[in-house]
């Protein structure tokens, strides 16, 4: 499972960077979305993939008997997904407003602030 996951994450990162290097701001946002998804998957994979072993402590014991899945990365991913969702929805609105105000979808035309 891990090699497959690693390859998927790698492809996602590559696709994200490719999209971000395009000139269109819509593609830039798509790149950012892919980038944050790649990061989330990577965190999910860091603790290793354990199948069918929920991190529950049986009744009357203080520690689980066998090796269990690490719940912490899942909690981290949950937080990261929520944050990324908020930030990316902001980015989508920003791109729409920028398109309305600047009147262009091309990053090369947005150089008012660089002179």
């Amino acid at each position: 499972m891990e090699p497959l996951m690693a390859i998927t994450i790698g492809i996602l990162f590559a696709a994200a960077i490719y999209m971000m290097l395009r000139r269109s701001i819509v593609k830039l946002v798509i790149g950012l979305i892919l980038l944050s998804n790649a990061a989330n998957l990577l965190i999910f994979a860091t603790a290793g993939m354990v199948r069918g072993a929920p991190p529950l402590v049986p009744k009357g014991m203080t520690a689980p008997e066998t090796a269990v899945a690490d719940p912490l990365p899942q909690a981290l991913v949950l937080t990261a997904i929520v944050i990324a969702f908020g930030v990316l929805s902001f980015a989508v609105v920003l791109v729409r407003r920028a398109w309305e105000i600047v009147g262009a979808d091309d990053l090369d035309q947005m150089k008012d602030t660089d002179t």
């Binding site: 971000m20 701001i25 830039l28 950012l32 980038l35 944050s36 930030v87 902001f90 980015a91 920003l94 791109v95 407003r97 920028a98 105000i101 600047v102 990053l107 947005m110 150089k111 008012d112 602030t113």
Partner: peptide, 13 residues
């Protein structure tokens, strides 16, 4: 808007 696009992108990366 133009400044914000650069700022947002770089900070997200």
């Amino acid at each position: 808007m133009e400044g914000a696009i650069k700022y947002v992108t770089l900070n997200l990366v």
